[in-house]
């Protein structure tokens, strides 16, 4: 196995992804990710020198909206699925100490 995923990497990626893995899941994730990266690394066999990365598959450009207000107050709907709400707002744990 060429790729080795450390505890620190799993910890760090967990912070980025906002996932908290159990010890068991972490061990599994280390293995899975290393396997996957080994597999992915076969792309290195391909010579991509000078190839333009293709993010949008078709050359469609300039899709715009005009600057016209068409949305009305839809607060009731927007808050419909909120796990917790207060005063017409989404309620979250305190964000500052």
């Amino acid at each position: 196995m060429a790729n080795i995923i450390t505890d620190e990497t799993i910890e760090y990626v967990g912070i980025l992804a906002k996932l908290e893995l159990s010890e068991e899941e972490k061990e599994q994730a280390k293995k899975d990710m290393a396997n996957m990266l080994d597999y992915i690394d076969r792309l290195n066999e391909l010579d991509t020198e000078g190839v333009e990365p293709l993010s949008h598959v078709f050359p469609v450009n300039n899709v715009f909206r005009e600057d016209i207000i068409t949305n009305e107050d839809d607060r009731e709907n927007i808050l419909l699925n909120a796990p917790e709400q207060k005063n017409g707002s989404f309620q979250v744990p305190k964000t500052v100490e």
Partner: peptide
């Protein structure tokens, strides 16, 4: 196409796009 007007009661100038509802998509204001 929500208003940018300042003030207003909380969340009254919102829609699925600007509240990140699943499946909503952005379209750029020219």
């Amino acid at each position: 196409s929500c208003s940018t007007a300042f003030g207003g009661e909380p969340n009254t100038h919102t829609c699925p796009v600007c509240t990140g509802m699943p499946g909503s998509l952005p379209v750029l204001n020219k």
